[in-house]
């Protein structure tokens, strides 16, 4: 086993939405490099509870990079500096012993603060509900190849479908734009025959909902693509714009 490490953590603590919030410092000692960042927080929280203090609130569920629950800005970068990695998959071996690690929540107007590192991402759900679905009853799974989809399209749909809806794109964007998320959902269905009947309505409704939630506009900075743990390409944003124009002309 590799040597245990020590860190200083600077963590954003905010009791509730009304509280002003501030950074607090914690010593993380005897941390195994094989732990994930969240496992390290579990250890810290156990100690905090033991000492009668309130543990650091953060979100997680699957802890294997597929659910999108974990959402921490690590040293200024959503999900940390490792590419294509969620916070739950980020291991402490990527941090040198003695390092100071800063942990903050996603910050965006459309993601209201809940507590510490937890923000409310319901806005994404409402955007999904505005059109991110296929409403025909598709019954049970059809035979393979009964609906032919071009390989190129199925690849593109699949790439877009990799989005886990974590919101890192919003947190990274200087405009807090949700374009990458919304575009991934629109693109995924736009490439498939099942998504075709509702395609126009979908593009319009989802984009309208996105604007209503208070997300900013895309300025093509491409920060979102750089931090996306699923490495969704900004190609989908171009496709979203195309879908929107298409829906508006006829």
């Amino acid at each position: 086993m590799s040597a245990l490490r020590n860190y200083t953590l600077r963590v954003w603590r905010q009791k509730n939405p009304k509280d002003k919030g501030a950074f607090a410092k914690y010593k993380a000692t005897n941390i195994s490099p094989d732990m994930s960042l969240l496992e390290m927080l579990d250890v810290i929280n156990d100690r905090l509870i033991h000492d009668g203090k309130e543990p650091i609130a953060f979100e997680s569920d699957c802890r294997e990079g597929i659910c999108g629950a974990c959402s921490i800005v690590i040293n200024g970068i959503p999900h940390g500096k490792e590419r294509g990695t969620t916070a739950c998959q980020l291991h402490m071996r990527h941090f040198a012993s003695g390092e100071t690690i800063t942990l903050e929540p996603w910050r965006a107007k459309a993601f209201p603060m809940v507590k510490d590192l937890v923000v409310d991402r319901d806005a994404f759900e409402r955007i999904q509900q505005a059109g991110g679905y296929v409403s025909v009853n598709t019954g049970s799974a059809p035979d393979a190849h009964s609906i032919l989809v071009h390989k190129d399209d199925s690849d593109k749909a699949f790439d877009a479908a990799a989005c886990i809806g974590c919101g890192a794109c919003v947190a990274a964007c200087k405009n807090a734009s949700a374009s990458l998320f919304v575009a991934a959902k629109i693109s995924q269905l736009a490439h498939l025959p099942q998504g075709d009947p509702e395609r126009k309505n979908r593009a319009k409704s989802m984009i309208m909902q996105m604007d209503k939630e208070g997300f900013g506009s895309c300025a093509n900075t491409l920060e979102c693509e750089a931090v996306c743990p699923k490495e969704i390409s900004t190609r989908v944003i171009a496709e979203m714009n195309w879908e929107f124009i298409r829906a508006s002309v006829d």
Binding site: N45, L48, I49, H50, G52, K53, E54, P55, A57, K115
Partner: peptide, 13 residues
């Protein structure tokens, strides 16, 4: 067991 925090706030513990 110890459960810090409030009942009417988000409380993962």
């Amino acid at each position: 067991v110890r459960v810090p925090g409030e009942v009417d706030e988000l409380n993962p513990t």
